[in-house]
């Protein structure tokens, strides 16, 4: 089974956001980077599928040259090669991202049975890249997937709706976008990291389409300083809390 996984490097944000002076980006000078969370699950799913079915995994990413760091990390987990379509530091909109990824997957020498990615990215949260890639490649797509099993070239996918799970079936080749909760991603092993150093990260140049959605500014929403009321501690706090429960009508 040949699997393509699309991944995105995003800033590793803790509890606060600092913006650049022009308010056009997150100030990443003092923070690290990570993989967008759902995509950690996508790579883990791919590795598990290859363990059962054989085959190989190719990572695709659109981003800065530094995204190689995240690609190496995922190569260490079990992907075989990576393709990085470098942008010159500027972020591109969802429509353009999907177009570039679809072209890269389409023109790759490998015919992929499956394209995996996150349903939405942690930063832009556009909810569309997988769907647009599927349309561009002429393949079916299942999104929001939290359970995945492939037998006889057919993927059985589960997604959560309230307390129940919906089941979908789709014939490969297909695009499947996943969510956190699909699995618990593994950490790279030391031998995995050593092997990853020798795995190829190819650079691919693709003309980026003109953007249709253009950022004019970012802002950190004023967190209404709620001026929390301290209920005290111990027994006194517990009593006061129960009074609050009565006041707001939950008791």
């Amino acid at each position: 089974m040949e699997i393509a996984v699309c991944v995105k490097r995003v800033p590793l944000v803790g509890s606060t956001f600092m913006l650049t002076d022009d308010a056009m980006a997150i100030d990443t000078s003092r923070i690290g980077a990570t993989l967008s969370p759902h995509e950690e699950n996508a790579v883990e799913a791919a590795v598990r599928l290859i363990e059962v079915h054989g085959g190989s995994i190719t990572l695709f990413s659109v981003g800065s040259a530094q995204a190689e760091e995240q690609l190496r990390e995922q190569l260490a987990i079990g992907a075989d090669r990576a393709v990085l379509i470098e942008t010159e530091g500027t972020e591109i909109d969802s429509q353009a991202t999907a177009a570039v990824l679809a072209q890269a997957i389409d023109q790759d020498a490998t015919d992929f049975d499956l394209v995996l990615l996150g349903t939405e990215s942690a930063d832009s949260g556009g909810y569309q890249t997988g769907i647009r890639i599927a349309h561009a490649l002429g393949r079916p797509v299942v999104t929001n997937v939290k359970g995945l099993d492939i037998t006889d070239n057919k993927a059985t996918c589960e997604r959560a709706v309230g307390a129940i799970r919906e089941v979908y079936e789709v014939q490969l080749p297909a695009v499947i976008s996943v969510l956190d909760g699909l699995n618990i991603p593994r950490y790279p092993s030391v031998p995995g990291r050593i092997k990853a150093r020798k795995k190829p990260v190819d650079r691919l140049s693709i003309t980026i389409p003109e953007p249709t959605t253009i950022r004019t500014s970012l802002r950190v929403p004023q967190s209404a300083d709620k001026g929390a009321i301290n209920l005290g501690s111990g027994q006194q706090g517990a009593k006061a809390l129960v009074e609050v429960f009565k006041q707001i009508g939950v008791m």
């Binding site: 956001f17 942690a122 832009s124 249709t212 959605t213 253009i214 802002r219 929403p221």
Partner: peptide, 12 residues
């Protein structure tokens, strides 16, 4: 953006 932790103004 970031599930509402950042607000983004865009021109479409």
């Amino acid at each position: 953006r970031w599930a509402g932790n950042l607000h983004e103004e865009v021109d479409v």
